[in-house]
Every structure is written in structure tokens, then in C-alpha cells.
């Protein structure tokens, strides 16, 4: 409905050189930008600011109270530890899957492409039910992890599988093979070629995927509802804590936990970024 105002309008754009960097705003596009920014603010920015403001409004008290609550502290610890563990697994397995998809050719590869994207599109509550059917009480494998901490790990792993694969895959596909072949012809082993030639170019993509998968895991909720049982002090994650604060009509506490989670995510993003830069530089 606003698409007409959002398209380039006016005459000034016509006179400029066609540059890839972009034109200055015309009147029509400026209105479009205004409308879009307002919508984005009302939908995303103001509500998120409200979370921060609510947490800050009740001061340090709310943070310390939230953290000194045993169940909350334990939920945050579990969430962060499991998210880190899952991210580590994804870094290895995601890179490996991307490698197999790009460098190997075998029948049925298209099926793998589809399977990898399924967790991204599957409703999270269905993801929980899906895992429960293989790793729950009626498991045909006889493996029942429902209600244990392993179920949290499993659910995180399921929902975060696509991230590293999908960020590494295009980079790997674009990689120039000449340097690898040169190294191999000079006697480097396959492992050395991978470590010294391929890995350095993949690290930024791996880091980006790892960050996404960590952030996703920290906030995960839906897939855990049916699988983990949400036992306080044992399998309850931070999102569930936030939800129960909301349901108990304690938005201050909910906002405090949300901000703590956000801060942890930010720290991890910064650490990953620093690590990635350092590793690339060392090459």
C-alpha cells in the first residue's frame, strides 16, 4: 500500500550519474523512509527500548534481585552453557556439512539441502514434538532424554543447525582453488591445506554463523516447552523464567532477565568478533 511512495520518485535522481552507492533522497523516497522508519520504530525499536527502560527504571535492585534468585541464576547459567556448547558443536559440524555440500558430489545431496533448512522453517513447538518422538518416552531407539539437561542441548542443537552451514557454504563455494592446488603440489598434506589455506578464509563466515546460532539458542523457547519439562533449577532456561515472570505480573523482573540475556549475547558477539579478527590476522 505504501510501495508507490517508497519507489524512487521525482526528477533529481535522473540527472545523477548511475552510481552503485546510491542517490540522495528524493521527496517521495524521503516520505517512504519516514513511513518505514516510523513503522519499524513502533514495531521493534520502541518496544525493545521499553524493555531496557523498564529494567533500568527499577534500578540495580531489580538486576541483583533477579540474579540472586537461585532459580533465575541457574536458568541463565544453564542457558548460556548450553548455548556455548551447541555453538561449539555447530562450528565443527556446520563447517563439515558445508564442506560436504560444496566439495562432495553424491546423489541425494538436494535432500540434505532441504533437511538443513527444515529447522529454520519448522514451528518451534513442532520442533519440540519432533525431537520428543525420537528422544522422548516412546523413543524407538530407547533413548529418553525428556526432562533432562541433555534435552535442552538437543533442542538448541536442532534449531541452530542451519546457521553455520548457511553462512559458510556460499563463501566456501566462492573460494579460489588455485592456492589449495599450489600448496598441495608443494607437498602440503590435506590437513595442512585445510588449516593454512581454507580455514583462514572461512573464519569470518564461521564466526558470523556461530554468533547467530548462539543468539538463537540463548533466546530459544518453543522447542523446549514439551521436551525439557521446564523443571526449576534443573531444565528451566532463561526464556521460561522470563515468561513465568510475565505471567506472575512481574514485568520488572522479566525485563531485568531479558536485559541480562541481551548483555550476555552482546559480550559473546564482541568476543567472537575479536577472536575472529585475531585468527584471521595470524592466518
Amino acid at each position: 500500500m505504501t510501495s508507490t511512495t517508497l519507489t524512487p520518485a521525482g526528477r533529481s535522481a535522473r540527472k545523477r550519474r548511475p552510481a552503485r552507492t546510491g542517490h540522495p533522497l528524493t521527496r517521495g523516497s524521503a516520505i517512504g523512509l519516514g513511513v518505514a522508519t516510523m513503522w519499524f520504530s513502533l514495531l521493534v525499536l520502541i518496544p525493545l527500548a521499553a524493555v531496557a527502560a523498564t529494567a533500568a527504571g527499577s534500578g540495580w535492585d531489580s538486576f541483583s534481585r533477579a540474579l540472586s534468585n537461585d532459580a533465575t541464576a541457574s536458568a541463565i547459567r544453564l542457558t548460556v552453557l548450553m548455548a556455548l556448547a551447541v555453538t561449539a558443536v555447530n562450528v565443527v559440524m556446520g563447517t563439515l556439512i558445508a564442506w560436504v555440500l560444496v566439495r562432495d558430489r553424491f546423489p541425494g545431496q538436494r535432500v540434505i539441502e532441504v533437511v538443513i533448512d527444515v529447522p529454520f522453517a519448522l514451528p518451534t513447538i513442532v520442533a519440540g514434538l519432533v525431537l520428543l518422538s525420537l528422544y522422548g518416552p516412546t523413543s524407538p531407539l530407547g533413548v529418553d532424554v525428556a526432562g533432562t539437561r541433555l534435552s535442552v542441548f538437543l533442542a538448541f542443537l536442532f534449531v541452530t543447525t542451519p546457521f553455520v552451514v548457511r553462512s559458510v557454504q556460499p563463501v566456501l563455494a566462492e573460494l579460489d582453488r588455485d592456492a589449495e592446488e599450489a600448496a598441495a603440489s608443494l607437498g602440503a598434506s590435506r590437513f595442512t591445506v585445510f588449516r593454512r589455506i581454507i580455514l583462514p578464509s572461512l573464519i569470518p563466515a564461521i564466526a558470523a554463523g556461530a554468533t547467530l546460532s548462539f543468539a538463537r539458542a540463548v533466546g530459544e523457547y518453543g522447542s523446549l516447552v514439551l521436551l525439557s519439562g521446564n523443571l526449576p533449577m534443573r531444565t528451566e532456561v532463561a526464556s521460561v523464567r522470563i515468561l513465568s515472570s510475565i505471567e506472575n505480573d512481574n514485568p520488572d523482573n522479566a525485563a531485568a532477565v531479558a536485559v541480562i540475556l541481551l548483555a550476555i549475547s552482546l559480550v559473546v558477539i564482541v568476543v567472537v568478533d575479536v577472536l575472529q579478527r585475531r585468527m584471521v590476522r595470524r592466518g
Binding site: P47, V51, A215, E220, Y221, L243, I246, A254
Partner: peptide, 25 residues
């Protein structure tokens, strides 16, 4: 800045999204 902010909804927990909207609306 806008470009970076636009990706944010993918990394925010759905529960926090619900909380955020509830606090405002």
C-alpha cells in the same frame, strides 16, 4: 545503523518480543 538494526528481530528471543510489545501496548 538502520541496516544493522533491521537484522535484530532474528536474534531476539520470542519471549522478549512478546514482553516488549506487552510493555508498550
Amino acid at each position: 545503523v538502520l541496516n544493522a538494526l533491521l537484522d535484530m528481530p532474528l536474534s531476539v528471543s520470542p519471549i522478549v518480543v512478546g514482553l516488549a510489545l506487552t510493555l508498550v501496548y
